[in-house]
Design a protein around this nucleic acid. Structure first.
Length: 276
DNA sequence: ACCCTCACCTGCACGC
DNA sequence: TGCGTGCAGGTGAGGG
């Protein structure tokens, strides 16, 4: 269910715990987790591979293998990784399992079944349709106030919906989109073309601040090797959210009641007084 | 090209 | 206790 900071946290944990390990056997228990590949082919292409490096693009986790392939994983709403030992049974919803030589195994568990995996040639990784249309990484030079202004002008949706579009801005999800708009003091319903240059610049800063703050707080979480990939929001992160999930609570800046509205079928939280 | 709605799943909290 | 409803951090397909 994670947004970019939680995926970043999962990637760091995986890099610590499974980088350098050899996959001696792999099983795809649920075909639709990886619809482009048969369970048989999945097993064959992963068996014997060493996990070289784990990184990320947007909310996608990328396992670079030593056989010129990369495993792309998206956690979607409920996907998580668990590192289990031979004493542990597979939990419910264990849709893929990677066995290592030391009797441990990495289990991909996904209660809601929305997660996705895909195996691609590493040389063509960024041509994969999952990655090719993503907006620039939010901390890259390519993502700039100028970039944001151009994309805002090219669209005319409500700003909150725009922020959730990973081809426009990458990494925000439903929580951090609300949070970024609160920091920038802009209404989530404002049309993207009506955002002034100055306010677009403020929004640019807020997007980075929200993500950076969340990555920092997640970075302080101790890695639980049995539950390395839960992608949880940082310890006590709910208390750090300024408006998300706080309908009718007091705005931290002005004290007026935080509102909840529906946009594109999803809840948006904001302060009607501070955000115009 | 954009924009909107729905679909994909399970589980949990809520009101009656 | 149960049952119905609405909700959940994400996206893609399919329509207009």
């Amino acid at each position: 269910m994670p947004e970019l900071p939680e995926v970043e946290h999962v990637v760091r944990a995986l890099q610590t715990v499974v980088a350098g390990r050899v996959i001696v056997k792999a099983e795809l228990h649920r075909q639709r987790l990886a619809p482009d590949i048969t369970p048989r082919s999945f097993a064959k292409k992963l068996a014997g591979a060493t996990i070289k490096f784990i990184h990320r693009r947007g909310k996608h986790i990328l396992f670079d293998l030593d056989n010129r392939r990369t495993l792309i994983v998206h956690l979607r709403m409920s996907g998580k990784f668990l590192l289990l030992t031979s004493d542990d049974a597979d939990p419910k919803f264990a849709h893929a399992v990677f066995y290592f030589s030391d009797e441990t195994r990495l289990v991909f568990q996904d209660q809601r079944h929305f997660g996705l995996m895909k195996l691609v040639d590493t040389s063509k990784l960024y041509e994969a349709k999952e990655l090719s249309k993503l907006a620039p990484e939010p901390f890259s030079d390519e993502f700039s106030p100028g970039y944001l202004i151009t994309r805002l002008k090219a669209s005319n949706r409500a700003l909150k919906e725009f922020l959730l579009d990973q081809t426009k801005v990458c990494g925000l999800g439903n929580i951090y989109a609300s949070e970024a708009l609160f920091l920038a003091k802009i209404s989530p319903s404002k049309r993207t073309q009506a955002v002034s240059k100055a306010r677009a610049e403020a929004l640019f800063i807020s997007i980075r601040d929200v993500l950076d703050e969340a990555i920092r707080s997640g970075g302080s979480i101790e890695v639980d090797p049995r539950n390395i990939g839960e992608g949880v929001y940082g310890e006590g992160s709910e208390t750090a959210w300024r408006v998300y999930d706080r309908e009718n609570e007091a705005c931290p800046d002005c004290g007026s009641a935080i509102r909840r509205i529906k946009q594109a079928g999803r809840s948006t939280y904001y302060c009607g007084k501070c955000q115009r």
